[in-house]
């Protein structure tokens, strides 16, 4: 790691004052599970590391009339175990619980999950976020078995966030604070597919801190289904998170969001449309799965992920249908 100044603010106000208007100058440290590796590999060489773990206002989960508020410092472990989250946002609870390493669940925070950098091995080996060489991405003809099957570049990495798909499907809002004040963005607009090497894969600005998440109150069924090869620490190959508002036995409205298949969580309006107005059966779930991947464009090695995404959508829908609303 390159030497840095370590700052330990006690308030959000103080923390944002330590950030910079430019990426690369300062980094925010929470759980450390990603940032410390990024710094070891010199992918991040901040001049200042702003540890936000002593900021009390970033902690805790509260249920209010406005919904469930989840502080950025809530760990995956706390999130997975929280009764309110389990009761009204099961897809989120399950997504956190599915991380197969207790140590990562103990350390990793909600904010960190959303702000972590891609695991793309080209990025991690220093070829840049878009892995460009001579104006062309290395990914489509390279080792792309774990890469994107949606979107047509230039970013081919997959969003690594475990919580992103569930948060988007649940219609969550994310609060970002800078010295100029707070702003709220929909989870759906928080993730972006970067168009060039200098942009980021999230809507956070370099002088902002992600402070909390708000999940709106709603009576919904929700589920997250992950296809993960190992049952020990491993990344999912594809996930699907669904939120359903039911009218009797039929789906009144639906959100279907896929994870680990594109540079951002992939909101599939096609799948939602396919299931809306229908009762969830093996056939309708299968049809929604097919609709979800109709526009997939796999790379040379990852056609199998199209199948996984389709199956994940189907199984997430069937899983959600089993729940009491």
């Amino acid at each position: 790691m390159q030497s840095f100044e370590y700052a330990n603010p006690a308030t959000v106000q103080e923390a944002v004052g330590l950030l910079s208007a430019k990426w690369g100058e300062a980094d925010v440290l929470a759980g450390g599970t990603d940032l410390i590796s990024l710094m070891k590999d010199h992918l991040h060489t901040p001049k200042r590391v702003v540890n936000i773990k002593n900021i009390k206002e970033l902690e805790g989960i509260q249920k209010t009339a406005a919904g469930i508020r989840i502080g950025a410092l809530v760990t995956m472990d706390e999130l997975a175990k929280n009764a309110d989250v389990k009761a009204s946002a099961k897809s989120l609870s399950d997504a956190a619980a599915a991380i197969p390493s207790p140590q990562i669940r103990h350390m990793g925070t909600v904010g960190g999950d959303l702000c972590q950098r891609p695991r793309c091995w080209y990025y991690r080996q220093g070829f840049g976020l878009l892995a460009m060489k001579d104006g062309k991405s290395l990914v489509p003809d390279g080792a792309n078995q774990y890469h994107a099957i949606f979107g047509s570049g230039p970013a081919y990495f997959v969003s690594a966030s475990s919580l992103g798909p569930a948060l988007i499907a649940l219609g969550a809002k994310i609060k970002l604070v800078s010295a100029k004040g707070p702003r709220e963005v929909a989870a759906a607009s928080f993730f972006v597919s970067p168009a060039n090497e200098t942009s980021r894969e999230i809507a956070l600005h370099p002088d902002e801190i992600l402070t909390e998440i708000l999940i709106p109150p709603a009576t919904v069924k929700s589920a997250t289904y992950e296809v993960r090869q190992k049952e020990a620490l491993d990344w999912p190959l594809a996930t699907a998170s669904v939120t359903l508002t039911m009218r009797g036995n039929t789906v009144a409205s639906a959100k279907v969001v896929l994870g680990h298949v594109a540079a951002k969580p992939w909101d599939s309006a096609e799948a939602a449309k396919a299931i809306t107005g229908k009762a969830i059966t093996a056939d309708t779930a299968e049809a929604a799965g097919k609709a979800a991947v109709a526009s997939a464009s796999p790379l040379s090695q990852n056609a199998y992920k199209v199948t996984l995404a389709r199956v994940a959508v189907k199984r997430a829908l069937l899983e959600a249908a089993k729940q009491k609303a």
Binding site: P100, Y122, L138, Q145, Q229, K230, E231, A232, D234
Partner: peptide, 30 residues
Amino acid sequence: ALYEERIMDNATGRMMNPDLEFYKLAGIKD
């Protein structure tokens, strides 16, 4: 049998998984 494979990249000539993250070893439940 289930997980391990050195992944070489035709594009760069590099080993892409020189780690214990994508060079996968079985865990206790696997």
